[in-house]
Structure formats: structure tokens, C-alpha cells
Nucleic acid binder design. Sequence first.
DNA 1: ATTACATATGAGCAATTATTCATGCGTTGT
DNA 2: ACAACGCATGAATAATTGCTCATATGTAAT
Lengths: 118, 118
Amino acid sequence: MNDNYICETNYIHKDVINEIKSKLTEPKQHLQLAEIFNILGDPTRIKIFQILSISEVCVCDLAALINLSQSAISHQLRFLRQANVVNYRKEGKIVYYALRDEKMKKVIDYGVKYLNEK
Amino acid sequence: MNDNYICETNYIHKDVINEIKSKLTEPKQHLQLAEIFNILGDPTRIKIFQILSISEVCVCDLAALINLSQSAISHQLRFLRQANVVNYRKEGKIVYYALRDEKMKKVIDYGVKYLNEK
DNA sequence: ATTACATATGAGCAATTATTCATGCGTTGT
DNA sequence: ACAACGCATGAATAATTGCTCATATGTAAT
């Protein structure tokens, strides 16, 4: 960013700025929050969440339900695994995925509530 | 997508598939949900939300608080305006931005709750 | 053993994204 | 009238993303 030009009379409202600064503790929280919401910020992943919140499902069934290639689903599942929001269990060739817990589902439910309040 | 090869014995579990399909009404909800969460899936925008949920703030102060160029902030504000989640009011040269309502803040609060439960 | 199947993964690609830079627009003060 | 300031915006760019394609891995069946 460019400190030279922008807002030379920087801090137009120093009092407001300072009040806000004092209230904004936890300097890294916005990064964690963005990370969480970013997980949910994709239609395919939301669909996966919606499906898994109904039932444990295998990769092939997920692909069929979402109408995407198995590869695409597998890539998204890897993403969700690395984000620690899904569990999986192997049964022979088949791998069943499930939500790790109800927390993420609750966040989505709040999104639904948001839509309905609109 | 490729219908030729993947999962020739498609629908490994037809009963599960059908049960899920019957429960997944509202075929476009996942798109709307992804859109909402996508708005929150960026650190800069989350910061803007955090600040605006404390107080109405002008563009220049936002830039100073977030430590980004005025231009970058303006672009993000345009995004948020088009997403109908912020209001703004002009006072001479200065433009003050505010949250349109509390709904989005509540969604973020749920994200915070998620983090704390971790 | 060989073949078929379910899933995982790396490479490649097109589309999207967040920022910077340059500039334009409207308002204020001189 | 003119300069300075706050903000908006278009173009350009680098980084990220979500998918496809090809292929690898492990399991099951013949």
C-alpha cells in the first residue's frame, strides 16, 4: 500500500478510530473467520454439506447427487478434509464421508435464516 | 462433466440417494448460501464488517484502520454495496458507510462462536 | 494373475479475485 | 477560478480457485 499520498490528513476522526481500535482486540480473528466462511463460499461445497448433514454418503453417490465428476468431488473432499470439517471411513473400495460435527451445519443454518429473513 | 466413465454402476446406494433427493428441496438454495458466505470469505471484508458493526465510518478511516489503500477499500465497498449489505450517506466530500442491518453481523457472530467452540 | 471398480491425486487450464496504479468526479476552501 | 481533498472507477496484474484429464492406488471379483 501507498503511505505517501492517501489521506494526508489521515485519521479524519481520530477519536472514532481510537475507540474502534480499542474494541478490535484479537488481531487475527478476521483471518480465521474469513477462512471458515471461505469454506462455505462455494456452491459445490455447500451442496456437500447439505447432503452430509442428512446422511453419511460415499464419494460416488455424492458425485451423482451433485452432478459433478468423481474427480471434482474428490478434490473438494480433500479440501474439506484438510479443513477438518469432515470425517471419512473406508469400507472396502468405498469411502464414506460424514460431517465431523454439527458446528458447521449450524453456521449454514444461520445462513438459511439470513435468506429467510430477507 | 463426463458421463461415460465415472461410476458405471452409478447410484451405488439408490435408496440413500432417493431419500436425500427427496429431502433436498429448494434446488437453488446452495447458490444463494454460497453467495452469502462468499461475501464473508475475505479477510478485508470481514474487517470492514467488524469495524462497521462498532460504528459508522468514512472511507478514509476504514483505509487507515485496515491498513490498505483507499482504492482497495473503495473497491470492496462497491462489492458490499452491490451485495446490499451496507448503506452509505454523503456529507460533503466524506462518505460514511454503515451496516445495512444486523443480520450479517449475526452470521459473523456465529462464526466467532464456531471458533470459540473449537 | 488379471480385470474391474471406487477413490485419490498431480498437472494443466480457464475463470475469478484482490489489489495497485492512474485517473475522473464532485465538493470545499482560498 | 483554481487547487486540494475524499471517494469512485477502469485497466492491468498476480494469485487463487474449481474443474477436467490422465493416471495412480488399493480392493474385490473372476
